[in-house]
Computed example of a mutant assay.
Amino acid sequence: MRGKRLFIAVFLLPPLLLYGIFVVSPYAQAFPIAGTNWSGLSPTYDFVGLDNFARLLDDGYFWTALRHNGLLLVLLPVATIVLGLFFASMISVGGRADRVGVHGVRGAGFYRVVYFFPQVLSVAIIGVLWKQMYAPNTGLINGFLRGAGLDGLAVAWLGDPRFAFWCVLAVLVWMNVGFYVVLFGAAMQSIPRDLYEAALLDGANRLTTLVRITVPLVWDTIQVAWVYLAIIAIDGFAIVQIVTDGGPSSSSDVVGLRLYKTAFADGQFGYASAIGVAMFFLTLTVAVMFLRVTRRERVEL
């Protein structure tokens, strides 16, 4: 027994130690730093108490960024989950019923690869790719619009405050929906096809079977997806920083990018840490809230 414990300790302690040093320690250090006016480079600093948190209440840039995160928190999970369920349903049980029974559409394997493809690309590549697609003169989107004779709709998508945020939202949905198509599709494989066949015999259409059969039986998976997407919505730093850098005029700014600029551009690490601490508690609250709101009785077969 002692040899077994020693064996486990040898393999567990090094990764736990590294995790504690490089992940837990920076998080823990943010709390005391949030109560100072540290610039990030100076060896000296003053303790300012809760002044940094009081400053948040009057920071217009912070509240603008937080409002954008709030919109992402509402729209990103809903759009991604709805599209993911629809595509997964079509791939798994969207084909016409025949002698074999209910099955997916023709070419389901190909569609799974296509939908999952964004997951093999890094965030940096996705950001640069879409930034070029949105380019006003050479971008694929405006090129398509001009080719279709819709020159009036070809605008500077990332340069117009009316569209910049929605362009970022579209990228976030595109880059995440494929993963949840595969995730929901895997969950649907455990649902007996007899249920779908019985529903079709009773005259139920595809939408009814999706809402009344599929969703209740994969609800646990949907709940997990909702929490993960909520965390992505609260962050959103990488894509926003690459595609729009928060502009124009902070029209697509998010809290993660505001924190980054406050620390590394303005040299206010104390205030940036206060933003990080506030977002830590906000993320924790949202995760708990989503788990409670979406909690329901498990449907068993």
Rank of each mutant, 00 (worst) to 15 (best):
P77G: 07
I231M: 15
G60K: 14
L210A: 12
G149T: 02
V120F: 15
T221G: 11
R258D: 15
A97P: 03
A187I: 08
R296A: 11
V155I: 14
A124V: 15
R292A: 12
G139F: 13
V171R: 00
V171Y: 04
V254P: 10
A198M: 13
T44A: 14
V105W: 11
M133G: 04
A170D: 02
L72Y: 15
V243P: 00
F110T: 02
D202K: 13
P216Q: 06
L12Y: 01
C167W: 02
S122Y: 10
G101P: 12
L41S: 14
H103W: 06
T244N: 09
K261M: 06
E197R: 14
V93C: 04
V254K: 05
L282A: 09
T80F: 04
E300N: 09
G178T: 03
A108N: 08
L72G: 03
P136Y: 03
P248S: 13
P77S: 08
M188R: 03
L13C: 13
G20W: 10
L282R: 09
R162N: 01
F116S: 10
F22E: 01
G127Q: 01
A198L: 12
I33Q: 09
T209L: 11
A65P: 13
I8K: 02
Y61W: 07
G60P: 00
V215G: 04
G20E: 05
C167G: 01
L217F: 13
F47R: 12
Q189S: 14
Y19L: 15
A108Y: 08
T64S: 15
D98M: 07
L129P: 03
A154H: 07
L301W: 13
P192W: 06
L301K: 06
R99M: 10
A79G: 04
H103G: 14
D51I: 02
M188K: 01
F116P: 10
G267L: 01
W38K: 01
R146Y: 09
I141L: 14
V155L: 05
P77Q: 06
D253G: 08
Y228A: 12
R162G: 00
L18F: 08
V299D: 04
A54G: 15
I191Y: 05
V168T: 03
M175A: 08
G247I: 05
R112D: 05
G143M: 02
A186M: 01
S42G: 05
L140I: 09
Y115N: 06
L301V: 09
L121N: 03
F116W: 09
A263K: 00
F184L: 14
E197V: 12
R212M: 08
V78E: 01
M289N: 03
D220K: 11
L183Q: 01
V243Q: 00
V93I: 13
F53P: 01
S273F: 03
A170K: 08
R96I: 00
R296Y: 11
I33Y: 11
L201F: 09
P77F: 03
D194K: 03
A278V: 15
A156V: 05
Y27P: 00
Y271S: 01
L301R: 08
L284N: 05
N69E: 10
Y134P: 09
D266M: 07
P43Y: 07
L145E: 07
S39R: 12
V173F: 02
W219Q: 13
S252K: 10
V182E: 02
R296I: 06
I242P: 00
L56S: 07
A265K: 13
V277T: 06
G203P: 04
D58E: 09
A65R: 05
L50D: 00
D46W: 12
